[in-house]
Simulated scan of single mutants.
Amino acid sequence: MDGVPIVVHRPRGTGGRRVTVRGQIIGLAHSDRDLVEFLRQAGIDETTAEDMVAGDSQLIEWRGGRAHQYEAA
């Protein structure tokens, strides 16, 4: 697999961050809770998804902004 499978893209001007899993857009997250829910819907169990987000997993790449920040700078 090339690159990181989960990407949280730069914050949008109106807030929120696009989330992709293996190149597929899965939603627009406005919080870590949203991100956990999207990962759960993508097939990752909720406890694992929560651990991944809270623990800054190597499987998640945060682009164009600080991790866990969803508002545009």
Rank of each mutant, 00 (worst) to 15 (best):
M1Y: 15
D2N: 15
D2E: 14
G3E: 09
G3H: 08
V4E: 10
P5L: 05
I6Y: 00
I6D: 00
I6P: 02
V7T: 07
V7M: 05
V7A: 02
V8K: 01
H9K: 09
H9V: 06
R10A: 04
R10T: 00
R10S: 02
P11Y: 01
P11R: 00
R12S: 00
R12F: 01
G13F: 06
G13W: 04
G13L: 06
G13M: 08
T14S: 14
T14V: 11
T14A: 13
T14F: 10
G15C: 10
G15Y: 08
G15A: 12
G15I: 04
G15T: 06
G16E: 07
G16L: 05
G16D: 09
G16H: 08
G16N: 15
R17S: 03
R17H: 06
T20H: 04
V21R: 05
V21S: 01
V21D: 01
R22T: 14
G23V: 11
I25V: 15
I25S: 13
I26F: 08
I26N: 09
I26T: 11
I26A: 04
G27H: 03
G27K: 02
L28M: 12
A29N: 10
A29R: 05
H30T: 09
S31W: 06
S31G: 13
S31Y: 10
D32P: 07
D32M: 05
D32R: 01
D32C: 09
D32S: 13
R33Y: 08
D34W: 02
D34V: 00
L35C: 11
L35E: 13
L35N: 08
L35V: 06
E37L: 10
F38C: 01
F38E: 00
R40Q: 14
R40E: 15
Q41Y: 12
Q41I: 12
Q41N: 13
I44M: 15
D45P: 13
D45M: 05
D45N: 15
D45G: 11
E46G: 14
E46L: 13
T47F: 09
T47P: 08
A49V: 03
E50W: 10
E50N: 14
D51V: 10
D51Y: 12
D51S: 13
M52V: 06
V53W: 00
G55R: 07
G55H: 06
D56H: 13
Q58T: 15
Q58E: 12
Q58M: 14
L59D: 13
L59A: 15
L59H: 14
I60A: 10
I60H: 11
I60S: 09
W62K: 07
W62V: 03
R63S: 10
R63F: 03
G64K: 00
G65F: 09
G65E: 04
G65M: 07
R66K: 14
A67T: 12
A67E: 13
H68Y: 05
H68K: 12
Q69A: 10
Q69N: 10
Q69D: 11
Y70V: 03
E71N: 14
E71V: 12
A72S: 12
A72Q: 05
A72L: 04
A73T: 12
